[in-house]
Computed example of a mutant assay.
Amino acid sequence: MINKKRKGFTLVEMIVVVTILGVISSIALVKYGKVQESAKMNADYTNAANIVTAASMAINDDENIAESLSVESLKEKGYLSTVPVPQSTSGRFELVISDNGTDISVNVNSKQFYPR
């Protein structure tokens, strides 16, 4: 009997490799989705901090403005270049200012983004 060596891979070897690659790629996609969601949340926290900074500047310039202050009015008065839009959720940023104007918070659909 003559033994011939065949070159190449068997069907079982190919199925094992494809299965392993599929498992690895599914793990990578799940991790990528979590990183993307985390980045959107961090962008929202940063935007909320920028809104609070702009509101503080507006209140320092005119103390009587605190009652009528909103994100849109901050843009109109030039304290913000654009009206930020939340990335991680739908809705819009809402500015909440205490009676004395010292405590400022930013919410989106009753979820607080500032202070953290």
Rank of each mutant, 00 (worst) to 15 (best):
M1V: 05
M1I: 06
N3P: 08
N3Y: 12
K4L: 14
K5F: 15
R6L: 10
R6M: 09
G8M: 05
G8Y: 03
V12R: 07
E13L: 08
E13M: 07
E13C: 09
E13T: 10
I15H: 02
I15R: 02
I15C: 03
V16T: 12
V17A: 11
L21E: 03
G22C: 09
V23T: 15
V23G: 15
S26H: 02
I27W: 10
I27P: 09
V30I: 14
G33P: 07
G33H: 11
K34E: 11
K34M: 10
K34N: 12
V35A: 14
E37S: 13
S38R: 03
S38N: 11
S38Q: 12
A39I: 02
M41Q: 12
N42C: 13
N42K: 15
N42V: 14
A43I: 13
D44F: 04
N47R: 06
N47P: 03
A48V: 12
A48E: 12
A49L: 02
A49Q: 12
V52E: 07
T53C: 10
A54H: 01
A54K: 00
A55P: 00
S56A: 05
S56T: 10
S56M: 07
M57K: 11
A58P: 06
D62W: 09
E63W: 07
E63T: 15
A66D: 05
V71Y: 00
V71P: 00
V71L: 00
E72F: 10
S73P: 01
L74Y: 01
K75Y: 09
K75M: 10
E76I: 05
Y79D: 08
P84Y: 11
V85R: 05
V85E: 10
P86T: 03
Q87G: 00
Q87I: 02
S88C: 03
T89C: 04
T89S: 06
T89P: 00
F93I: 06
F93R: 07
E94S: 07
V96E: 09
V96N: 14
V96F: 13
V96W: 08
I97E: 05
I97H: 00
S98C: 08
S98E: 04
G101F: 03
G101V: 01
T102F: 09
I104A: 08
S105Y: 00
V106P: 00
N107L: 11
V108Y: 02
N109C: 04
Q112N: 08
Y114T: 04
P115W: 02
R116Y: 13
